[in-house]
Design a protein around this nucleic acid. Structure first.
Length: 486
DNA sequence: ATGTGC
């Protein structure tokens, strides 16, 4: 790959494209990457991050995280903060899978206790958690009940005995973005979504059994605060899923609406249709913001009911209650959202609309809006690698202020799904992984091939880069032993 | 990512 000649190295892990790079840029573009990662980035990333820099109201820089790759309009691994007064909201800056996110759950079991029952455990998870495209959820709802889920998120789960108070505390925003009004969501979106509560989905969505090996703990103090030091080789559960067809339909509906009004009604000219947007304070912008929150809340509720079922499965397999197994949440992080947050710009505290697309909020120690128990450590940041190579738990840092306290979200793809399918075979991959101690169940070998570790960047390099850039600090590396995926 | 594509 060739990087643009105008790309300047600002620091070891910070690269910049100046405003002169592309006509209409309102701010420079900044890319967090090591030299190796920046060279691996596709040319599309540099074009896209500079396109984002032309959007009205953008503050400081258009950003790309070390796991960044080409996406719809904005790069995946993108971050753009807008002035809500003069700026826009853009569905492409949030993504189709609204609030796709990661949840990490503890157990007090050791790998030695789990391994003899691993196959049974993974088979039971696979049997009890619906996976794959078009799967139906285990929570049966009428459409009006689903609208309540969309407005209430995890709070709905608490009322219906799928959650504990502590689960809500350990979820961003308590598992509910306020201001979600289901009347802003189309009938079609509800029709697609109402039978999807309690589904994992497909693509890179998975549920994984992982081990915290003592030699993989990088920050002992934070590891203890996050609950990872109960037993040596402690087993934890990490899972990744989002708002399914519901969020997809919300994004589709509003992209279409915005394309109709953006230029004709608001006079906004954009170089790429995929950057469709509307002024944040316009009726269309506010309506999308509300509908997006409905999808955010559906995704929080989806992860919450899945957690409920994971607890049931562990309870059945190990003949102990979830409390006896200490199945507490470490945290739940959202990847694809826009949020109003207060940040310091030019020495003044200002409210900004922060678009994160394939990037993670990473508030540091003492930040408002994170659980009290994490006040000294910073918020937990859960970064999933590929199913072959392992994942990380990190913590937000005060030094992340320049990037509006945001970090990476995963490994980032190095090849398209199509290319990965050509290069790898799912059945062979499953066999090879089992030889290496990772038991995988899937209902799509094609889908499995797309997720091969070799189709992703080096997760160790990505998280090290976030640490060197001051965005987040590594706490522990988590090694997979079992995985179910769609 | 997605009842996987105009």
């Amino acid at each position: 790959m060739t990087t643009p000649a105008a790309l300047k190295r600002i620091a070891d892990t910070i690269w910049e494209l100046p405003m002169s790079y592309k006509e209409g840029m309102l701010v420079p573009a900044r890319i967090f990457a090591s030299e190796k990662l920046v060279k691996e980035m596709d040319a599309g990333v540099f074009e896209q991050v500079c396109n984002v820099a032309t959007l009205p109201g953008i503050q400081r820089y258009a950003y790309c995280m070390p796991d960044g790759h080409w996406g719809y309009g904005f790069p995946i691994g993108g971050l753009a903060a807008m002035d809500p007064g003069s700026g826009v909201i853009s569905p492409g800056g949030i993504g189709f899978d609204i609030n796709c996110g990661m949840r990490l759950v503890l157990t007090n079991l050791s790998a030695e206790e789990v391994l003899p029952r691993l196959h049974h455990l993974v088979d039971r998870l696979f049997a009890r958690i619906p996976t794959g495209v078009g799967c139906h959820g285990f929570v049966k709802l009428k459409q009006d009940e689903f609208r309540q889920v969309a407005e209430q998120g995890s709070r709905w789960c608490l009322k219906h005995a799928y959650a504990t108070h502590e689960d809500l505390e350990m979820t961003e925003e308590g598992g509910c973005f306020s201001g979600a009004d289901a009347s802003d969501v189309s009938v079609k979106a509800v029709e697609r979504g109402f039978n999807q509560l309690g589904t994992l989905g497909s693509g890179n969505h998975y549920c994984e059994i992982q081990v915290v090996q003592p030699h993989n703990i990088m920050d002992a103090e934070r590891a203890e605060a996050f609950g990872l030091t109960m037993v040596p080789n402690q087993v934890v559960i990490m899972f990744h899923c989002g708002s399914r067809g519901f969020g997809h339909q919300v994004a589709t509906d509003y992209l279409k609406l915005f394309l109709g009004v953006m230029e004709r009604k608001y006079g906004i000219k954009i170089r790429d249709r995929e950057l469709a947007c509307a002024p944040f304070h316009s009726p269309e912008g506010q309506s999308y913001f509300s509908a997006m929150k409905c999808a955010v809340n559906m995704a929080f509720a989806n992860r919450q009911v899945i957690l409920h079922r994971i607890r049931e499965v562990f309870s059945d397999v190990f003949h102990k209650s979830p409390e006896e197994l200490a199945m507490r949440m470490v945290y739940d992080v959202a990847h694809n959202t826009a949020k109003l947050e207060r940040h310091t710009v030019n020495g003044r505290v200002k409210e900004l609309l922060v678009h994160r697309k394939g990037s993670t909020r990473a508030f540091g120690p003492g930040a408002q809006g994170i659980p009290k128990c994490y006040d000294k450590t910073g918020q937990p940041v859960i970064i999933g690698g590929s199913m072959e190579t392992g994942s990380y738990l990190l913590a937000g840092m005060s030094s992340g202020a320049d990037a509006f306290f945001t970090t990476a979200h995963g490994s980032g793809r190095t090849m398209s799904r199509h290319e990965a399918k050509k290069q790898f075979r799912g059945d062979k991959l499953q066999h090879d992984m089992e030889q290496r101690g990772i038991y995988v169940r899937t209902d799509s070998f094609g889908g499995l091939a797309e997720e091969a570790g070799a189709a992703y960047k080096d997760i160790d390099e990505v998280v090290l880069t976030t640490e060197l850039a001051g965005l987040s600090k590594r706490v522990a590396r988590l090694v997979p032993i079992g995985n179910i995926k769609g």
